[in-house]
Structures are given as structure tokens and as C-alpha cells.
Design a protein around this nucleic acid. Structure first.
Lengths: 348, 348
DNA sequence: TTGCAAAATGTAAGCGCTTACATTAAAAAC
DNA sequence: GTTTTTAATGTAAGCGCTTACATTTTGCAA
């Protein structure tokens, strides 16, 4: 008959419950939790006891609403399934934790529209700042971030004089270094298996790195066969077969990342081609797989963990607004392993 | 002199701003956003126009606070760096997205205390439900979840008659199947390289699976050499060397997961041991690496993606509270590849 | 037309916190 | 002991939304 029976069992305790229980005001409880030194010991103990007894835990949403600060940093990555991001983000999170921040991750599956949506979602959730991968995205997004005054840091990319603060390496020159090495071995017909460049500026930059070196070496751009394909071992293999069907066929196949390269390696083995005897193959990233592959993969080593860690401290600095950090350029270096050698002597 | 100048530029627009702009009440704006069919077309268009013009985006925290629902599901996984979780969670997220839910991930680094903290954090953030890995955790946590009435689903594990609703496979019997196969090949001295079992019931179960089979085959438990080590390729290798130093040495080394097994494989190669000629090695999970390894790894195939996907739909069902789903048991199957063979004939 | 049910909209009370400001208690200075 | 300063606590006004309930419009049968 009474219509005011609470629907479910014992409601979760609120700040007010604690206050009542400890016989203080809600403000005091709040202070105990957020700036304990403003509360005299005797009171604080009483409050904490009440917290314990009631099993009180603050409601995050209410806190965020009132305080306009969440101690949360959002990250939008293309996918968790890529080891390089998984690794970088793990380090990122660990470092954030050390500074008392929480991480909110979202993934965009390499789709620009989805990325934008995720950025808006994280912002709506009150992320104090964002980590984004790569520079390329619509002006609208950057404007949005500026309007909302949400600090953002671009990672996995570094470009001289880029407007957006960033931490990363120069994809163009990193790939160029490797290409130079390949050409130095005597290769004149190159193949490049790239990740899809449409909404991936890192992939685009890597292609550009190779092209630059071609020009630099006085080679015609037609000396480069380019295939774009989705991320994956099997797709890398398929692209490699396609490339080997070309005539004349490239004597060295550079890949936009290690996963594609491992796929190429496997396809080569299946086709009975010797690497690097018949064809050289290189990767990019230096994931664990690169060293384990047979033959071990020549690749560009990228300090993913360090990047994650440092991205975190930069972002924390940006949020706390002390001094704004400069963009950081990290160094990559080439790991020379067995998959690269000179071209076969009978190369036409 | 005026102390009321707003500190920063154009404030972010709120529901009230939109209402004013469209000349309706806040309730109407809210309805337009959440149940558009309750608002007549003419009004709705006017409101939407205002939303556009002001670039309004709802404040998630305020919404959560008022509505007591977040359409958010939390997941606490041991680490993102493990491909099996990365893969499963990616599928989990995709499926959640399809149902209009957002995912919040946190990782515990395999530390029980951290896991508990993350569970509390996600709950405080208003997660409507949680995905947890494995059954084992303190009663306190389960009580907490019950008190807060937050539905939880255990994944990557399935145990008959477990109290907690779960989706996964039976780690004990999956590993037992593999062990039976190994013994069937004639091996009588086994090694087992396990992940650390302290706070990982999946690892524990797998060990138990092997032990059960030993008993079943009438072998003494001393026929099993057990080493626990951290997750990683190199740690797997070290454990393998240690195992090979034993006398008599095992003729087959089962590993708790593929990553450890790949490490063992590599160590074997470095030691000049032939696999499976001198020693057999097996894994668990069937990650991509397993097939690429040289020789390819015999392992237990686990449908990680499917598990993630189905976990999502179960959780959605639990939140919406239609009918509660039953625990789901998925099948694993053995992928027989080159790394397993009969013991060397000279085995003492 | 008028009347009335149904549909659309408005009003306002929270949701659980934080924090400026007001008040009171304690410590320091005289 | 009184006054002044400072520390501790309390009061109450929001933060930006949702939603029960009240009110106004609308559509339509009589």
C-alpha cells in the first residue's frame, strides 16, 4: 500500500550518509577525502571510520560534475590489436597511474569518422586531455578541441613545425634511412607494401620516405612498385605474391610495418624463394616477431614504450598547466638482420 | 574592477543554452536527444538546429548522475600486451558498440589488489556491468558487486557449477586433452612451463589438467617438472633452459601459453636441440605466432574473438535485464603441428 | 461548436558531489 | 582576561542533466 518503499535493498551510501554517520557536514567529509590536511586529526579519524563502516565510495560522475576535473586522460588509438599500440598504451597507462591519472581508451578501427566520434565521447566524459595518434584529422576536430580547451597531444608522429604538440619520430626520415640502406646494397627495383594510407598519415609518410630516397639516388619513381593493403599477416602475404608476379620483379620489398613483413616472409617461404638470396624483405616497428622470424627481419626500431611513457608525462604537464612541454622527437634506429642482403647477381 | 568577468572565452554550451536558443524548455531538449518520438517534428527540427548552431554536446557526467545509467560496460583485463586479451577485447568492444554501449577498459597487471581497485573505479564511474577475467578473486569483491548490484560476467574461464555467471572454456580439460595426446605419443617425463599461478586461476587450472592426466595414466606426479615464470618470450626461454638442465630431462615440455612456448622454441634452437626430434614443445591459445613459429607449434586453439563477442551480448542482456543468460561453455580444439612428436628413442 | 482524451510541452525537484563564503572554535598576542 | 589572528567547520548554491507531474495544445468525435 505504501508507495514509497525503496525498490531495491540497501542503497549505496552517499557523502551525506557519511556526514550524518560521523556527525559532521558534507563539506568536511569532502575535505577529508580531497584535502585531508584541512581537517583536524580527531575529526578526520571519525569521518574515515564512518567511510569504512558504510563502505562508502565517492560517485565519480557527481564529483566530475561539481569539480570540473576528472583526473582522466583519454586516448584514441586505431586498434588494440596492433602490438605497437598495445605496448605503448600500456606504458602510457602505467605512467599516468603514477601521477594519479586514469586512462580511458577508445579505438577507431582506422576510421576517421569513428575517431571523431570517439574524441567527442571522451571529451563529453570529461577527459582532462587527449592522446591522439598521428597528425592527420579534420580541422573540425582540432577546432572542437580548441573551443572546449581540451589539451591534446599527438603521438607516434613528429613533424617539424607542426602546429599540434607532438611526441614521436619522423616517419619520413626513418623510412628514408632504411631505404638508403637498401639501395646501398645495390637494389634498384623496389617494392613497397604499405598499410592503407587513406586515413593514416604515418603510412603515407613512410611511402614518402622511400620516394624521397629514390629521387635522391636519381632513380625514377617507376622503380617503386607500391601496393596498399590492410593490416595483417595474411594480407601481407597476398600483397607479396602480387608483387612477385610483377615483371620485372622487385629485388627488395620494404614493408610499412613488421606484421606485413612477416606475412611477406612467410609467403616467400611458401613460394620457395630464399630471403635474402632471391629477394630482400624489411619491416618497420621492431616488434618481438621481427627478431623471431626466420630469417630475422631487418627493420626500424621504434621505442614504443618510451613514447607511451613520455607522452603520459607530457600530458600530465599540460593538464597541470605548469610549463607547456615542447614537442619531442624520438630517435629510431635500424636493426640490421638477416632478411636484407644484396640483390641476386642475375637480377636483370 | 568587475569581479564577475568569466575567466575564459566562450563557455561550452549547455542544455539550457540550447533550450533558450530554440525557445523551448530544457525538458524538451532532453527529450529530443533521448526519445525524439515524444517531440513533434516542428519543435524537434528547431531544437536540432539550435544544437547544431551552438555545437552542443551533452555532458556525460551530468547525464549519468541524473539518469543513473551510463550505457557503459567496464572490463578489467590483466594486460593489453597479451594478444589474446587484445583480440578478445577488440571483438568485445565492437559488439558492445553495436548495442549502443561504450567500453571502459582497465588493466591490472595480474595484481589482485590492483584489480580490486580497478573494479571499484569502474563501478564508481557508473559502469552498468563488468567483464572480469577468471573466477578467482576475493569474496570482498564479489560482495561489493552484489551490494552495488552491478552485474558481472567472468570470461576466459568456465567451471561447472561456478556461482558466478561465466563464458569461456574449461582450462582443466582443455589442457588435459593436450596432455593425453602428448602421453599418447609415448612421453613419460614431462615438463610444464606455467605462467605464475598465484593470482591466475587459468594458469592453475592448466597445471591441474596435466596432473589429472598423469594420475589417469598411472604415472607418478614426479614425472612432471614444473616451472613458473612471468609472461614473455625471453622468460619462456630461460625456463626452458632450466628445464633442459634437469636430469633426467623431460622429453616433452608443455607450456601454459603460446608466448612461453615460442620462447622455449627459440631457446631450443639456440641450444642446438631439434624439435620435436630431441624434445617436443606445446603451447596454449593458438595466437598467430604459433603457426608462424619454426617448427609450427602444437597448441590448444581458443576462440578468443568469439568469446569477446559473445561476452558482450551476454552482458548487454544482463544489463537490459530481459532474461538472464546461462553460463556459456566454448569448445577448444587441439591444433596438431610439427612441434610435437614421439620422444627420442634413446630416452633413458 | 463544444468537449474530452491524447499528445506535446513546461515546471521544478533532484542526482551526489565541490567550494565560496559565513560562522565558530582555537591559538596567539597583548 | 580581552582582543586579534588563524584554523576548523558549516551553510548552501550550484555543476548539467533527467523525469515525475502539472499544464497547455491538439485532434477528433459528437
Amino acid at each position: 500500500m505504501t508507495s514509497s518503499i525503496p525498490p531495491s535493498g540497501p542503497a549505496v551510501p552517499t557523502l551525506a550518509d557519511v556526514a550524518r554517520h560521523a556527525n559532521v557536514s558534507t563539506a568536511t567529509v569532502s575535505r577529508c577525502l580531497n584535502s585531508p590536511d584541512q581537517v583536524v586529526l580527531r575529526t578526520r579519524e571519525r569521518v574515515m571510520k564512518a567511510v569504512q563502516e558504510l563502505g562508502y565510495a565517492p560517485n565519480f560522475n557527481a564529483r566530475a560534475l561539481a569539480a570540473k576535473r576528472t583526473n582522466t586522460i583519454g586516448a584514441v588509438i586505431p586498434t588494440m590489436e596492433n602490438a605497437i599500440f598495445a605496448r605503448g598504451i600500456q606504458a602510457f597507462q602505467e605512467e599516468l597511474g603514477r601521477h594519479g591519472f586514469t586512462l580511458l581508451v577508445a579505438s577507431s578501427s582506422y576510421q576517421e569518422a569513428l575517431e571523431e566520434e570517439q574524441i567527442r565521447t571522451l571529451t563529453a566524459r570529461g577527459a582532462d586531455a587527449l592522446l591522439l595518434i598521428g597528425h592527420h584529422r579534420s580541422k573540425r576536430v582540432y577546432d572542437f578541441l580548441k573551443t572546449r580547451s581540451v589539451p591534446a597531444l599527438v603521438a607516434w608522429a613528429y613533424a617539424d613545425g607542426a602546429e599540434q604538440r607532438s611526441i614521436g619520430f619522423d616517419n619520413v626520415s626513418a623510412m628514408a634511412d632504411l631505404a638508403r640502406l637498401v639501395i646501398g646494397q645495390g637494389h634498384r627495383r623496389l617494392g613497397f607494401i604499405s598499410a592503407e594510407t587513406a586515413s593514416n598519415d604515418r603510412a603515407r609518410d613512410r611511402v614518402m620516405g622511400v620516394r624521397n630516397v629514390l629521387a635522391e639516388a636519381g632513380l625514377d619513381q617507376s622503380a617503386l612498385a607500391l601496393i596498399e593493403t590492410q593490416y595483417g599477416i595474411s594480407t601481407g602475404g597476398e600483397a607479396f605474391r602480387e608483387m612477385m608476379a610483377l615483371s620485372p620483379r622487385p629485388t627488395a620489398v620494404l614493408c610499412g610495418n613488421d606484421v606485413l613483413a612477416v606475412g611477406a616472409l612467410r609467403a616467400a617461404k611458401e613460394m620457395g624463394l630464399s630471403v635474402p638470396g632471391d629477394v630482400s624483405i624489411t619491416g618497420f616497428d621492431d616488434i618481438e616477431l621481427a627478431m623471431l622470424a626466420e630469417p630475422a627481419l631487418t627493420t626500424v626500431h621504434v621505442p614504443h614504450r618510451e613514447m607511451g611513457r613520455r607522452a603520459a608525462s607530457m600530458l600530465v604537464q599540460m593538464v597541470n598547466g605548469d610549463t607547456l612541454p615542447d614537442s619531442t622527437r624520438l630517435d629510431t634506429d635500424i636493426r640490421l638482420r638477416q632478411s636484407l642482403g644484396p640483390p641476386p647477381s642475375d637480377a636483370a
